[in-house]
């Protein structure tokens, strides 16, 4: 692990133009992505484009719902939402398709809510493993604050909780040029390298991603 991170840092230094790829999230029909990594997803309107459903490589947490068309008679149906699920998975450099089985009766909807029959597939069609939990809000359901609910969810010990999403991370200052004058270079580069390596391993996924972005865009 240490070697790979050293290599990564070295690569960043030598090839500053290397792009750190994201993962893209694609919901299938009937699936709504409500939040990604603690941030609520804005709703697409007829006059605005669909917000980019993207996350950095690594651990990703999404909030999802499925809206089923429940058959009421031979020629009518009503819409019913599934419970609100939190899915946490790991992926890198791929498109993650979020799928749910087609549901048209209450029996299947109850079963879905009980078993979380979600399927996450990468761009090669391979299933991704995930952990899951549910976001539950007591009271009026209109205008739910998913960001606040996720903060509470991520402070629990639920399997799908990602505690680091609640941790404040450092924002690397992109306005400061990273190419410092030679006089600022520390004479003990071995120690600098060790410290970089040490602190990188102490960083959360989000801080690492911020750091990578800073390297990418700051040079």
């Amino acid at each position: 692990m240490k070697k790979s991170i050293t290599c990564l840092l070295a690569t960043c230094a030598l090839y500053p133009a290397v792009s750190f790829a994201d993962i893209e999230i694609k919901p299938s029909n009937g699936v709504g992505i409500l939040a990604i990594n603690g941030k609520a997803v804005e709703t697409k309107t007829f006059f605005s484009d669909l917000p980019e459903l993207k996350a950095k490589n690594g651990t990703t947490q999404i909030v999802v719902e499925y809206t089923a068309e429940i058959t009421e008679s031979a020629d009518d149906y009503v819409l019913e939402d599934s419970d609100t699920f939190v899915l946490t998975f790991k992926a890198a450099d791929t498109t993650v398709r979020v799928q749910a089985p087609e549901i048209s009766n209450r029996y299947d909807l109850k079963s879905f809510n009980r078993n979380a029959d979600w399927r996450l597939l990468d761009d090669r069609g391979n299933p991704l493993s995930f952990t899951w939990g549910k976001l539950e809000k007591e009271g009026f359901q209109l205008g739910r604050d998913y960001e606040k609910e996720l903060e509470e969810f991520n402070s629990t010990d639920t399997q799908a909780a990602v505690k680091s999403l609640n941790t404040e991370t450092h924002s690397f200052n992109k306005s400061v040029p990273t190419s410092q004058p030679p006089s600022n270079v520390h004479p003990d580069q071995k120690m600098v390298g060790q410290m970089l390596e040490y602190w990188y391993e102490q960083a959360s996924d989000e801080t690492k991603n911020n750091f990578k972005n800073w390297l990418e865009t700051g040079q």
Binding site: P27, S28, N29, G30, V31, G32, I33, T43, K44, L50, E65, T67, V78, L79, E80, D81, K137, E138, G139, F140, Q141, L142
Partner: peptide
């Protein structure tokens, strides 16, 4: 494209 729809659960 968006895949989303919603029923209106008012209170739970």
């Amino acid at each position: 494209a968006a895949g989303s729809a919603s029923a209106a659960t008012i209170y739970e």
